[in-house]
Structures are given as C-alpha cells and as structure tokens.
Design a protein around this nucleic acid. Structure first.
Lengths: 367, 367
DNA sequence: TTGTAAGCGTTATCAG
DNA sequence: CTGATAACGCTTACAA
C-alpha cells in the first residue's frame, strides 16, 4: 500500500506538499496539485486514517452503542444515525448486544482513539451509569436515558404525552371501565407511559381503579396472558391500553380465542406503531414513535460537541409521539395521522431487501 | 487523556513495560503488572487504538457496506455481522445508503487504514465492480454478488433452490395454470428466483405459459397492480408465485378488493418470509431467507483473511433457503417448517424496542 | 525481567 | 509556494 512518502518520491515533491494537497489545497500551486493528484491516483494512494487521527486528534468517527440491532425500532434508530453521520462526514462504529455492563464498558473502551463522540442507549440503569463515565473521554449523547442525565446530551421519546393523548382519546370515546397493561418495572418507557396515561384521568377528574393496572413485560405472550385477568374483572372493562403493540397483539389474540370481538366487546390500543399494527385486523390504534428521529437528533446534537464547536451545548431533547387512531379502539374518527406513517426516505431494493410495506392507504389487510 | 508515557512516569517504569502489560503480559513480572494495572486504572488509561494500529498495521475493525440499514432484512444481516464480529473481537465500521458508485467508493476509501477487511453488498453491478477493486487494499467478502466474483469471497442466498421448491410445491398441489410475478430486471435475486421457479416446470415436464410471467418491482403496489392483468387472463390461473412477500401482500389485497378468496379462488405465495407473512390472514406460504446467516457467514469467512491466517481462502458460499408452507397456497400440509422461524437469539427489550413478535405457535393473528 | 530507541504514516511548525 | 523536521501514542527489536 502506497504511503505519502512513496507518492512524494514518485512525484518529485516533499511529503509536506503531498499532505497539503489533501488538506490545505489552496497553499499549493495548481500544477503541483494536479501532478500530485495524478501520481497519487496512479499509485492508488489515499491518506491513512489512523495516522491522520493520531496527529490531528480527531477521528471523524462516532461510536454507536445499542442494546440490539434487530427489529424495526433499532433498525430505524441506526438508520437515522447513519444518515445524519454521513451528512456530517462522520463514520460510524457500531457495537451492540452486550450481555452485561462489563462487556459494554469493554466495547466503549476499545473505541478509544477511534471515535470523537458516542451515541448510546443503555439497556439498564447500571450500564447507563457506566456510559456516563465516559464523558471524560469524549462527548456522549444518551438515547432514552433515565431521569438524571448529568454531563451528557440526551434524546428521549415523549412517552408521557403519547400515553396522555391515548388516555384522553379513550375517555373521549366515553369509556370509563378502562384497564392498562403496563410494561416491566424499572423500564423508563414503561413508567412514563403509565404516568402519562394516568394523567389523563386526573385531568378529566375520572377516578382510575388501580386494580386495573395489569403487569406485563412488553412481550406478546404477556399480553396474551393478561386476557384472563381482564375478563374476570367485574365490572368488565370496556377498553384496554397496552403499553406496547406486542402486548396489544397478544391480548387481541387471546380475546378472539375467548370469542370476544374487538372493538365491540372490548377496545384495545397499543404503543409504538410497529408495521404490523397497520395491517392487523382490526388495525390497531396506537401511538407512533419515530425511531429515525431519535437517531438523527442524537447525531445532530453530538457532532458540534465532537467537533469542539465553541458554544456547543448538551441538552435534553424530547422527540414527539403522536396518536394514530385506527379501528381497534372503536373510534370512527378520520385516520388523518396515517399520512405520517410513510417512512422518510424508505427505499425498496433487491429481493428480501425491505420489510417496509408501503402504506396501503384506505385498503386494509386481507382478512 | 492519559497516554502511555503518563502511566509509565506515574508507575515509575518505562513505556515499554506499560505496553507489555497490555500485549505480552507474560514478559512482565507479576508485581509490576499489578502495579501498572492499578496506576492505569486510576489514571483511566487505555491504549489508543489509532496509534496501536499504526504500528501493528492491524485495526481489529471490519468495514460493512450495505445499500440500506432499514428493514427486517438488512437489520438481520447487520446483526449477524455484529455478533460474529464481536465473537472474533472485531469492531464494525458501517456505512450505507450510498446514492451512487462515487459516494460508495468515497466511503470505502475513507475507511482505509481503519479496517482490516470489508463485507459489502452492492446495490448494482457498477458498484459491485468498484468494490471488487478494493481487494488490493484489504480482503473483501461480497454479499449477494452477481455472477463472477473474482478475488473476493462471496455469500449468496440460494434463491434458485427456494424458488424451485416453491414451483414443485405448487405443481404438487395439482396447479397447472400458474403465474409468477417477477422482480425487477437486472436484479440478481429476481433473476434467480424466476430461473428456479421455471426449472420446476421443466423438471416436471409441464409447459409454462410465458405470458404468465408478469413484471413486478418488489413493491407492494406493483403486486396490487398485477391483479388486473392476472384476472383478465384466460384461462384464469389458479396459483400465483410472487417473487417476494411484499408483492404477494399487495396482490392478496387487490384480490380481496375484487371479491376473490385466497386460496380457494387463487392460491398466492411469496418469497422472504418477512414477519407479517406469518400473521396475515391467510398466513402466507413463502420461502424463508436467513439474513442473519448471510452476515454471520460473511464475517466468518472474512476474519481469517483479515488476520492473514495462512491457508485462508476466498470461497463462494451459498446460504440455503427453505419452503414455509402456510395457508395461502391452499395446502393442508403440516406446518413443520414453522419451528425454524424463531429468531436465533432474538431479544425483547424495553418499549418499542423490538418488532420481533414471538411466534404465536398454533394461534393465528386475530382477524 | 526491564529499558532504550527506532519507526508506523500522517500533519503542524518553522524556515526558506 | 515548498521543504525539512518534530511530533502524535504506540509496539517491538535489541541491549542490558
């Protein structure tokens, strides 16, 4: 592999000149630039990134730490990160699925000297604390952090408002016997969604029966299992808000097995707006969460910090969520929010390439 | 940020000793190791990756180039890559969504000196050729390459066999009026799927009416539009094989609008086995494609090449595909292939985290 | 077992 | 405008 020295020798100039051709071109005479460029191209030369970052102390790369890469959510987060990073001329070093805090710390540590900043989503509070510790090494932006953020930037989803809207919507439809399946204890999303949902009742001065908060764990099967508890409750609730779509899907499945109709016998709603939500029968009323935006904003906030742009500040941004009313809640409201569902920049390419089923508009899934 | 020199000074040893603690620990006396480790930990020192790779000429990182990151397919590919890379102690530098060959080349070029090898999936033939050119810089493994592979390693999906099996299955069910919606011209997957499908007819010595090859483009809407052509064909076909699930979904949607029943009036099958395929009503008969495996194998093949392990060879591996029989083809066959659907290592975590709906077993999607 | 010193490929500084 | 040369933080002969 040709080095700067080879090119300099071959072109009959000093290495400093070759370097300048790639960095401060204006300081080199036009003919020299052209000549060096030509020689470099012929020798297939390109500056070595590692050497470059050693002296400049900048890598032009961002680290990305996610609990997982699989699935609609993370896949979108990382796409948002990737696109924003490219726009800003940054490379992306990813790492995911760390079994424990130790593994996670090791991963970040090994990124040292290779990244100018870090976007991280912690799988738990312990890991979050560890990640915060890296602020001394490079700027950090946390995705969906717990409460206290400290020296880091942070982007979180407006789980609270989304759930609040959902509560208002169900109350607005006249429901009073309303249950909710909450997510796991200690999970930030789960707590906020519950808090927002209950706030709607407070706001409307409608009492909420606490025995109608059922514990779920965000899996489809937990939603399935909740059906039994729900159905034996007296008086039987008329609506259920599941804290995510998976649980709503499990619940609906169980209700159907029990011979109940959704939404006529029981209205069901979810949270996340995963792809299937739109294609189910009945289509699921839920809250749309914009994962792409989460990644995009994180990079937007991180880059100035990474560049050391003066005046760059850590802030805590909130990504809005929005109610998507479909049929499963029994509302006959116009589905205006649907338009927003089209993925920004979603591409369809070869074969199994994309799971992005274009919004079918008024058509529904065959049933 | 503490450097090796700071640690050496603080610990009262030479920098060589500190270095050895991190590389050839065995050459350093136990007490010295402990002492240096302690000082390093206190000073929050960790070797700088860039400096390290400059001298060793190895980066312990792999580059990953994909057309996109979004969607079930790519998301799984990258997960396979990520997990395999971590297992082999490699970091992953990703880059995706390049608008043209130029952008793609620039992306790879900028990885020079930062990676020991490259896993790439080219969006088109032109880009594929460009990527092949990088073989001179580092080992390359191509995903889903075109025909000639040259100096690169390659992993491709067995589109041919999957489609062949599908053809056999439909013929075995007694269908004779069979149509197929093919994917875009020039797309490797599309061509292979068509070729495999037609091979089944040749094998069974059943003539295939070429007017029943309908041109699609892998999008749901193209499947939707094909319905009209299909329905006005005389005699009307009794089965349709769409070259991917998206088109099959669009088609089924259109058929339902036209008042036709699937599979009674027209059997429909797809390819890819995207998540929705299993939850649709009727569940879609399709061909399972293992994207995770694609990524996993690519890294497995690349790592020895990147390490310069002697005897390491470039090969062209084929990832098998498998027929998944569900209801949309009108078969009443046992759904044994279903068991394989569970995602390897699929995790469900917080909130909108995962779109991985656990296989509901015998339960179906509510309808 | 430890230290000294050369050098990885680049950019920055300072002369010319 | 161009060239010599000293860093950058580290690994690795070679010497002690």
């Amino acid at each position: 592999m040709a080095t700067i020295r080879d090119v300099a020798r071959e072109a009959g100039v000093s290495i400093a000149t070759v370097s300048r051709v790639y960095n401060q071109t204006s300081l080199v005479s036009e003919p020299t630039v052209l000549h060096v460029r030509a020689v470099a191209a012929r020798m297939d030369y390109w500056p070595n990134g590692a050497a470059r970052s050693l002296i400049t102390n900048r890598t032009n790369a961002l680290g990305v730490l996610l609990p997982d890469l699989y699935g609609e959510f993370f896949s979108e987060v990382i796409r948002g990160i990737d696109l924003a990073a490219r726009r800003e001329k940054y490379q992306v070093l990813v790492s995911s699925s760390h079994s424990d805090t130790e593994a996670l710390v090791a991963a970040v540590r090994s990124m040292r000297g290779r990244i100018d900043g870090l976007v991280a989503m912690a799988p738990d509070a312990h890991s979050a604390a560890a990640i915060r510790g890296f602020t001394r090494n490079f700027p950090v932006v946390l995705l969906e952090p717990g409460l206290e953020v400290g020296e880091c930037g942070a982007i979180s989803l407006d789980n609270y408002s989304g759930a609040l809207e959902m509560g208002r919507h169900l109350l607005g439809l006249g429901h009073r016997g309303i249950a909710t399946i909450r997510g796991p204890l200690g999970n930030v999303d789960a707590e906020e969604r519950l808090r927002g949902f209950l706030a709607a009742f407070e706001e409307a001065e409608v009492p909420f029966n606490e025995s109608l908060v059922i514990q779920g764990d965000f899996t489809e099967s937990s939603g399935f299992l909740c059906a039994e508890l729900l159905l034996k409750h007296r008086p039987r609730p008329t609506a259920v808000f599941a804290a995510n779509d998976c649980m709503a899907i499990g619940l609906i499945s169980a209700l159907r097995d029990a011979g109940l109709r959704v939404p006529q016998d029981l209205a069901v709603t979810g949270f996340d707006d995963i792809a299937i939500a739109h294609y189910m029968s009945p289509p699921l009323t839920t809250v749309r969460v914009d994962a792409y935006e989460l990644g995009d904003r994180a990079v937007r906030q991180l880059v100035p910090l990474a560049r050391g742009t003066k005046g760059a500040q850590c802030t805590h941004e909130i990504v809005p969520t929005s109610l998507v009313v479909r049929a499963s809640c029994g509302s006959n409201q116009v589905r205006s929010a649907e338009a927003a569902r089209r993925r920004p920049g979603g591409r369809v390419m070869g074969g199994e390439a994309s799971a992005d089923i274009p919004d079918a508009g008024p058509r529904e899934m065959p049933s």
